[in-house]
Design a protein around this nucleic acid. Sequence first.
DNA 1: TGTCAACTGTCAGTGACTGACATTAGCTTG
DNA 2: CAAGCTAATGTCAGTCACTGACAGTTGACA
Lengths: 227, 227
Amino acid sequence: MTERQATIESTTGLRERKKQRTRDALLRVALELFTTQGYEHTTVDEIADAVEVSQRTFFRYFASKEEVAFAVQEMVESHFVAELLARPPEEGPFAAMRNAVLGSWNTIGEAIEAVVPVELHMRTYRMIESTPALLAAHLRRSTDLEERIAGIVAEREELDLDADPRPRVAVAAFTGVMRVAGRLWGQGEDASMESIRTLTELHLDHLGPALAAEWRTPARTPGAHTA
Amino acid sequence: MTERQATIESTTGLRERKKQRTRDALLRVALELFTTQGYEHTTVDEIADAVEVSQRTFFRYFASKEEVAFAVQEMVESHFVAELLARPPEEGPFAAMRNAVLGSWNTIGEAIEAVVPVELHMRTYRMIESTPALLAAHLRRSTDLEERIAGIVAEREELDLDADPRPRVAVAAFTGVMRVAGRLWGQGEDASMESIRTLTELHLDHLGPALAAEWRTPARTPGAHTA
DNA sequence: TGTCAACTGTCAGTGACTGACATTAGCTTG
DNA sequence: CAAGCTAATGTCAGTCACTGACAGTTGACA
C-alpha cells in the first residue's frame, strides 16, 4: 500500500523524490542490461554498481531479480483490468475481454513512457518470452491475473464463481489464446504494436471455429469462419 | 538420450542397477521430504544426506532441485502423448484430446507405482500447485507440452501449424481448461482419482457453452448444456 | 589380474538472497 | 537553527542452489 508505481513526481519531500529516482534508475538500468547482455548474464551487483547503490539497496526496492523484469508488465495488467471493469455490462464476457485488451492498447503507450521508453519495454517483453526462468514467472503471474479476471467476469454476469465453472473456463480459454498470440509475436520479426494487434485479433477470431468438431475445411484467411 | 525413466530393472550390469537404485532413492526421499516439510524448507543437502551420497552426486542425477519434483509428472505427460497418438483419426481434435486424457488415467496408476507410491505422487502434485516456484516451473513445462500437442493435432488434421492458427488455439483452450480443473482439484478436499476425473469432464463440458455470448441462463448442473 | 572408464567425493567459487547492526541524511519540533 | 527522530542506506556475515576441476573408487572387460 505504501508503493508508488508511476513516475509522477508529486510535490513531496526530497526524500520521496530521491527514492523515486533510485527506483527508476534501477529499473531502467536493469532492463537495459537484461535486454542487451541477457537476463542470466546480468548480476544484481552489476545493476547496483551501475546505479551506485549497494546490492542490499537493490533488494529493498525489488524483492528479487525477477521482480524488476516485471515492473512495467504489472502496469500493463492493471491497465487491462481497469479497462475491463469499464466495459458496458451488455457486452458478453468474450466481447468484453476482447475489447478491453484491444482498448487498453490504445492508451498503454503513454503510461509506459512515463516510466521507461516503450521500445525498451517491447524488448523486455521479448526477453521474458525467450528466457525460460522469466517465462515461468510470467506464466505464474498470469494465473493470478486470470483469477482476478474470472472474478470480474463472474461479477459482470452475476454468477457464483464457485458454483458455475463458466467464468474460469472462459477466462482460461481466452488467456490461453492470448498467450499463443503473444508468444508468436515475441518470436516473429515484426515487433510493432500493429503486429501484435493483428495477431491477437486473428487468434481470437479462431477460438470459436477451433472448437468445432470438423476442421477439414481450410481456414487460412483471418476473417473467414468456416463452419 | 542416455536417461532411463522407469524402474525396470532390466538384466543389465551391477553398475546400472546401482545407479537406478540411487536415482530412485533420491527421488523418493526428495518427494517425501518436499511433501512433508515443504519444498522450500528442504535443502538439497538434506536429500543427499538421507540417501548418503554427496550433494554433487544429487546434481549428477537431477539438473536442479526443481527437476526432481517433476520426474513423475514427466512420465504422466509421455503417457498422455502416447495415448493421443493412438486415438483414431476420425475423432475431432477435441474429442481426441479429451479421450486421450481420460484414457491415459486408466493405466497411469501402474506406471507411477513402478517408481513411487501413487499416493506420494498425488501429494506431490498438490505440493507443486501450492508452491509458487514449482507452479511457475510447471506452467512453463506445460507450454512445451502444448507445443508438442499442437504439432500432433496439426498432423492429425493434416494442417500446417504455421499457416493455420487453429491447432495452437484449440490446444491452448483445451489445456487452459485442464489447468483450471487441475488447480481446483489441488485445492479441494477430495484427492481421489475419481474426483479429478469428474472435475475434468465437468469443465471440458463447459468449454463450448462458455464461448456463447449469452450466459444469463444458469448452468449449474454438470451435463446440462444450455444453448 | 590388470587396465580403462564410469561414478563418486571433495573443494573452492559464484550468485541470489536475508538478517543484524551501524551509519547517514531528510524531517520535525522547540 | 540545533537537537533528536526516523527512514534510507551501507556493511558484514551467513545460507542455499549450483558448477568446474581434480582426485579417488569401483564395476566392466580383455
